[in-house]
Computed example of a mutant assay.
Amino acid sequence: MSYASHPVRLCGERLILDFLNTADWAADGRVVHEKLATPADVDRWMTATGLDGVSGPKTARELTRLKTFRAALRAMILEVAGEEGETPDGIRAVNAALRGIRGDVLAETGSPAAASAAGVPLQAVLAISAAAVLADPRERARIKVCPGDNCGWLFLDETRNARRRWCSMETCGNRAKARRHYRRSQAEGG
């Protein structure tokens, strides 16, 4: 179930959360569906998120390191969001990626906008995004985990009343509504 055969869906509201959503997660933290099966899948994801100039993994070993980085970041963000226990590995991974930045992170584009400088490692860009989200107490408080079966995606609930429940109403939300309707109709008919 890689991005070679499935489209990239972005619903985390922040780059780091969309990166963590490159896998579907079981409640126990196990990856159920991996979407980054090859370095080309990472390239597809980076293109979808506008990170074309960023340097992604080129080898299977680099891809494995990126997935290990992703698992540590997810555990850390869940811990900060109040979902799990201590995660010093995530903090160390973010700090190591931030220390590893060489050269410019932003490049001028000739317009009022700026872009990631060419060659900046993907892990550095992701570490910056994670640090930005985790440094803001309002954002930390609005990080939620989708309760959909084998989804586990993270998103930032930016609704006014903070009542967003699903990563996407079109997928997990509709599946839950359909299951409730089916159970109700079975109970009424049985």
Score class of each variant (00 low, 15 high):
residue 98 L to K: 09
residue 29 G to P: 03
residue 113 A to G: 07
residue 113 A to C: 07
residue 135 A to I: 01
residue 161 N to R: 11
residue 86 E to A: 13
residue 101 I to M: 13
residue 181 H to V: 06
residue 82 G to N: 01
residue 120 V to K: 05
residue 80 V to Q: 14
residue 56 G to N: 07
residue 130 A to W: 03
residue 137 P to I: 08
residue 86 E to C: 00
residue 175 R to E: 14
residue 3 Y to L: 08
residue 87 T to S: 15
residue 131 A to S: 11
residue 126 L to E: 01
residue 106 L to C: 00
residue 113 A to T: 03
residue 17 L to W: 09
residue 25 W to Q: 02
residue 56 G to E: 07
residue 81 A to Y: 04
residue 44 R to C: 10
residue 148 G to K: 06
residue 77 I to Y: 02
residue 176 A to S: 11
residue 51 L to T: 05
residue 116 S to F: 12
residue 116 S to Q: 10
residue 8 V to E: 07
residue 88 P to S: 03
residue 168 S to A: 08
residue 186 Q to C: 07
residue 158 E to N: 08
residue 155 F to A: 02
residue 75 A to R: 15
residue 37 A to T: 12
residue 105 V to L: 13
residue 74 R to G: 02
residue 100 G to T: 08
residue 40 A to F: 14
residue 13 E to N: 13
residue 7 P to S: 10
residue 43 D to A: 13
residue 132 A to I: 01
residue 133 V to G: 02
residue 122 L to G: 06
residue 172 C to Y: 05
residue 126 L to T: 01
residue 139 E to V: 00
residue 157 D to I: 01
residue 60 A to N: 03
residue 107 A to R: 12
residue 2 S to V: 01
residue 158 E to F: 01
residue 79 E to K: 00
residue 12 G to R: 09
residue 44 R to L: 15
residue 12 G to C: 02
